[in-house]
Amino acid sequence: MKKIMYYMIVFTLTLLVMSLSGCSSDDDIVKQEEEVEEVVEGPSAEDSLTVPEDTSFLGDSIMYMKTYSLSEYAIKEVSVSTTQNGHITVMGGYKDQSTVYVYAKVDDDKDDLDEEQVKRILEKYYTVDSYVSNAEIVANIKEKEGVTYDSDFRNLRISVKVFAPQNVSTLLNVARGSIIVKDIHGNQHTATSVSGTIKYIDSSGKNITVNTENGYIGLINTDASQAMNARLAKGNIQIALPKDAKAGLLLESSTKVNAYILNHSNFSGTNTRTKVEGTLNGGGYKIEANSGLGVINLRWYEKGKD
């Protein structure tokens, strides 16, 4: 009897350990997917574009790829627009080729469809265009018009990732989702999202305009020769500047403006709880930020922390 009880206890403990191990593995997968969204690594000064071997981006399968030789096309602008939920990433500094990747997955995570099923839906119900026109890379994604929606139709989350030269302008628009731009130093930059995160990192331009109704805006180690403008109806805005930045500031929030870096030695103007207006380090290009409901943070850029 004691032996039987012993074996039953061992068997029960074994099942418990196996169950816990399986849960741990699932949790690890979730954490890895969450971390991928924040990793935006560009090339070093010596690098040229190497086609990534990754088979996924934010968990989405690669459905489309198009490469343009920079010796054939003098790319000066990247324009990406999608009417679907998803993500747009533009990474600069590539010298030999520019590549456009399109990724897709079912927008409802409860739908368990394999890659081939998603690809059939993409081809049947959506238009994916990528081409070069007048030194501009264009990538447009939208639902097809005049198509009858059968029972196999699903809304897709469609993401675009572009490897580009460093000196290009950007015109980016996504319905709901994130826009991330890194190491881009073109002329004009505009990014728009109904809801989501928009970040310009280690970038510059003549004018930078960023708008989203609901979400987060980050202008990290990024500047402009004329003006940088960020507008957000609901959410937080973070502006991280080099300590030697010279700018005219107009920061307004109905909630709060945190600008603790400003003092009598580097700032002249008004600094209240909800508004900062004046000149930083003697003045220079214009920085305007407005959040209807959210906090605006102005701070110094710290390499390795952004």
Rank of each mutant, 00 (worst) to 15 (best):
K31E: 04
T99V: 03
E123T: 12
V40D: 01
K95H: 13
E143Y: 07
T209E: 15
G146H: 04
K142N: 03
A74L: 04
S56C: 03
L232F: 04
D152K: 08
E145G: 09
V36T: 10
A191Y: 00
I137G: 07
L122A: 01
Y125V: 00
K303C: 02
K246W: 07
G215Y: 01
E213G: 13
K105D: 05
Q32H: 12
T209P: 10
G42K: 10
C23G: 14
D223I: 05
P242H: 04
N290W: 04
T50K: 09
K161H: 02
Y301K: 05
G284I: 11
G269D: 10
Y73D: 07
K234Q: 15
Q238M: 08
A240Q: 07
R273C: 02
I75P: 11
A230P: 08
A139T: 09
D223L: 11
T50H: 10
K76Y: 14
I208W: 04
M63R: 00
D109C: 11
L262I: 07
K199A: 03
E53Y: 13
S151Q: 10
N221V: 10
D107I: 04
K182A: 12
T82E: 06
I220T: 06
I198H: 01
S69C: 01
K144R: 06
V132Q: 07
K124D: 03
I217S: 00
P242L: 09
G59Q: 02
S79D: 04
L241D: 01
C23H: 11
F11Q: 05
L58G: 11
L13M: 13
T272D: 08
I88M: 01
A74H: 08
E136W: 06
L262S: 07
E288N: 13
V181N: 00
L262E: 12
K199N: 05
D109W: 09
V102E: 02
Q238A: 05
K3Q: 11
S48G: 13
G269K: 08
D244L: 03
M65T: 08
S25L: 15
K66I: 00
R231Q: 14
Y301W: 03
A191P: 01
T148H: 06
R299L: 03
A191S: 05
V128I: 07
G59C: 09
G215I: 01
K105P: 04
N211F: 12
Y94Q: 10
I141Y: 00
N140I: 11
I62H: 12
I217N: 01
V102Y: 04
V118H: 01
C23R: 05
T209S: 12
T127D: 00
L49D: 09
S159W: 03
I239N: 03
D150S: 08
D54K: 14
G235M: 07
D112N: 12
S195D: 12
T170L: 14
T14R: 03
H264Q: 15
E33W: 12
D54M: 12
W300V: 05
S253H: 06
S253I: 13
T270H: 15
G93V: 07
T190V: 09
I198A: 06
E145R: 05
E77A: 14
N134S: 14
G283Y: 11
D27P: 09
I184R: 06
Q188L: 14
R231S: 14
G22S: 15
R157P: 01
S253E: 13
I287S: 01
F153I: 00
H87C: 01
Y285F: 11
H189N: 09
C23P: 03
E35K: 13
I75E: 06
S61H: 04
C23A: 05
